Amino acid sequence: MKILCWNTDKAVWKHWNQVISADVSLVRVEALDGVYEALQSASSEFKYCFIFLQDKSFPKQVEDVVALRSVFPHQKIIVFPNQTSQAAALRLFSVGVSGQCAPYIGREQLDLVLSVVDSGEIWGGKKFIQQLIQQSATTAQVNESELEGLSDRELSVTQCIAKGWSNKKIAHELDITERTVKAHLTSIFKKTNTKDRLALALLAQNYYPVL
C-alpha cells in the first residue's frame, strides 16, 4: 500500500517513516502542485493522502486541502495540523476529510486511525465532532447577520471562498480581475469581522447550509 504525503518538515517526515507499518510505502511531495500531479497520474495508487499543516501558512493550507477535496472527492485525506484550531477542524471535516491527528502520532494509534478510516468512519470520535460543530455554529451565529450587509457581488465571492476556490478561479468564474477579487475580499473581511479566508469560509458554511 502506498500513501502520498504532503510534508515539508524533515522531523515530522522522519517520524512518520518510523511509525508506519513495514508493508506501507510513503511517497513524499513538498509542494501542492506535486500532490495534484501525483493524484492525477495515479489516483488509484494512493489509498491515503497524509498532509502536514504547518504553522507558517496554516489558514492557506487548510483552504488548499478544501480545494484538493473538491478535485479528488473520493481520496481519503488525513491531516496532521501543527496547531489546534476548532475552526479549521470543522472546515476540514465538513468537506469530507477523513481524520485529524497529531503530527507525532504513535505507531499503535496510527494503525488504529487507518483502521477506523478504512472502515468508512471519521477519526476523532463522534462526540468530539458534535461538540466541534455545536461550538462553531454558536460562534458563527454572532457574525451571520453581518453577511446580510454584503452586496450581491460580495456574496458571490463569499460563496466561492466557501467552496475553496482560489482568487484566480473566482475571477474567471465571475468574469472579473484578480485585483477586483482581492478588493472585494478586503471589503468582505471588514464587513464580517473575519480575519482570513478560513474564518470567512466557515461563516459562509453556517449561513448557507448547502453550497
Rank of each mutant, 00 (worst) to 15 (best):
39 L>E: 06
111 D>S: 11
127 K>V: 15
27 V>K: 10
68 L>M: 08
46 F>E: 06
124 G>N: 07
133 I>K: 14
108 E>S: 12
30 E>M: 11
5 C>P: 06
180 T>E: 09
75 Q>C: 04
183 A>I: 04
86 Q>R: 13
198 L>Q: 10
68 L>Q: 05
147 L>P: 02
5 C>V: 12
129 I>N: 09
71 V>S: 05
146 E>Q: 12
150 L>W: 01
25 S>V: 11
151 S>H: 01
190 K>T: 09
66 V>H: 05
63 E>A: 00
197 R>P: 07
131 Q>P: 01
78 I>S: 04
167 N>Y: 08
130 Q>S: 15
126 K>P: 11
44 S>H: 13
76 K>N: 13
188 I>F: 00
184 H>M: 04
51 I>E: 05
8 T>N: 14
135 Q>W: 07
107 R>L: 09
74 H>N: 15
100 Q>L: 14
163 K>R: 13
129 I>S: 09
172 H>S: 14
172 H>V: 00
208 Y>C: 12
23 D>C: 09
199 A>W: 08
82 N>E: 12
140 A>L: 11
56 K>F: 09
96 G>N: 06
41 S>C: 10
72 F>T: 04
55 D>K: 11
188 I>R: 04
47 K>M: 11
99 G>Y: 04
144 E>F: 06
97 V>K: 07
135 Q>R: 15
54 Q>T: 12
140 A>C: 11
15 H>Q: 04
82 N>W: 02
126 K>W: 12
112 L>K: 11
156 S>Q: 13
25 S>L: 12
85 S>W: 01
10 K>P: 08
172 H>C: 07
118 D>W: 01
11 A>W: 03
163 K>Q: 15
192 T>K: 02
150 L>V: 06
122 I>H: 11
182 K>P: 00
126 K>S: 15
100 Q>V: 14
50 F>S: 08
68 L>S: 02
130 Q>T: 15
67 A>C: 00
77 I>H: 04
64 D>Q: 08
199 A>C: 10
61 Q>C: 01
172 H>W: 05
189 F>T: 02
85 S>E: 01
39 L>I: 02
102 A>Q: 10
177 T>F: 02
62 V>H: 00
210 V>T: 12
184 H>I: 02
7 N>R: 09
38 A>V: 04
119 S>E: 13
161 I>Q: 03
100 Q>I: 15
41 S>D: 13
57 S>W: 11
137 A>P: 05
21 S>N: 11
1 M>V: 14
38 A>L: 05
58 F>P: 04
161 I>S: 00
164 G>Y: 02
133 I>Y: 11
162 A>W: 01
159 Q>M: 10
119 S>F: 05
210 V>D: 14
91 R>E: 06
182 K>F: 03
193 N>H: 15
107 R>D: 09
129 I>R: 15
132 L>P: 06
27 V>F: 09
122 I>K: 15
185 L>R: 05
126 K>Y: 15
134 Q>E: 15
209 P>T: 01
66 V>T: 03
175 D>Y: 08
139 T>P: 00
173 E>R: 06
36 Y>V: 07
40 Q>W: 10
188 I>C: 03
81 P>D: 01
153 R>D: 13
42 A>P: 07
82 N>T: 11
204 A>G: 09
205 Q>M: 14
